[in-house]
Design a protein around this nucleic acid. Structure first.
Lengths: 177, 177
DNA sequence: TTCTGATCGTCAAAGGTTTGACTATCTCGC
DNA sequence: GCGAGATAGTCAAACCTTTGACGATCAGAA
């Protein structure tokens, strides 16, 4: 195995190179699973980077802050723990993010009468305007990405992603359980 | 539209609920692109969380630290900037991570004779052992995820993900360009 | 009623990441 | 040569996120 100039690779060609090398060093490696993991992770990273840098940061929102606004927008007023579950983050993260969102007048925090431990989060009118404006641009970016696939390819891709999402491995992962 | 108890949703059923609500509020929303973005992002998050919590953190590696070891393992010794590009992170992040990896005896930093600004990163023997042990477990998790799909489904999924990765939208995103 | 265990939101600590600035160094045209 | 601009790695600042701990509160059994 001659030493090709690995320095000249970009991330994409690195995937092919890496799979060959890994298989040579660890013969038990499953190259298809490896490619799936690498490609999925890289694509998601590029998506989030795109959303964050072109849509949310220019509007003064962090990616986490947008996710909180997003779930409040679509699910309606929520107790903090439910917002955390739907947004896929810890209760502590919601608590920290809401501090900023409340300061910026986008979210209100009110006590829940039935449970004095709980806090109900709700969008203000400014918060509603901010999240609809941001999501409109966000969805425009999503459309730009999706446009690379035909309609049937999009359907197939979504089906396969959802199959993975509901797989036993996903259930075992139990994110932020 | 009666107010269903959105609080009782889990993340998965939230996707359906969210798409309906968003379409109602912002008619220009593309529901397929929205589902693609949500599903892809959620799946990748679950994957990374699984890798990090079951494989890397128990071995004393951060997710970022593993990614640096991973590219050095497969691409061989690299200048810091190349490691950053292949690992998909900033030069500053590599610099910070290598500080820890060097302290733990997993990576060495040596001056490059031809360019006195540059630093060449290389795995130590302990680093090589650490990354092969970690990646073996990592790939085992990847196999567990991939096992939910048939071989041909895996092939189709990888093809579609790579098509998105090489799309114009991805090129425009230019992550960490 | 009272006690035990679970749950809620928050905080502090630790760690990771990015951006932007900075110094040192290289490259290329003159 | 030499000087302007580009580049490498590092640092500081800011921000986000997780974990673990805590006080307050709730729920259910004896």
């Amino acid at each position: 195995m001659t030493d090709r100039p690995a320095e000249d690779l970009d991330y994409l060609s690195f995937v092919d190179y890496a799979i060959g090398k890994a298989k040579a060093e660890l013969p038990d490696t499953d190259p298809v699973a490896m490619r799936l993991g690498l490609t999925l992770h890289r694509l998601a990273g590029a998506l989030v980077y795109d959303w964050e840098s072109t849509v949310h940061r220019p509007r003064g929102l962090s990616w986490g802050g947008f996710r909180v606004l997003f779930v409040l927008w679509l699910a309606g007023p929520l107790e903090s723990r439910h917002a955390a579950r739907l947004a896929g983050m810890s209760r502590a993260a919601v608590s920290a993010l809401v501090k900023t969102l409340e300061r910026d007048g986008l979210v209100t925090r009110t006590q829940v009468p039935e449970d004095r431990r709980a806090v109900r989060l709700a969008l203000t009118e400014a918060g509603h305007d901010a999240v609809t404006d941001a999501y409109q641009a966000h969805n425009t970016r999503e459309q730009a990405w999706a446009a690379s696939l035909t309609a049937s390819e999009q359907t197939v891709l979504i089906g396969l992603l959802e199959k993975l999402t509901t797989s036993p491995a996903a259930a075992a992962a139990q994110r932020l359980a």
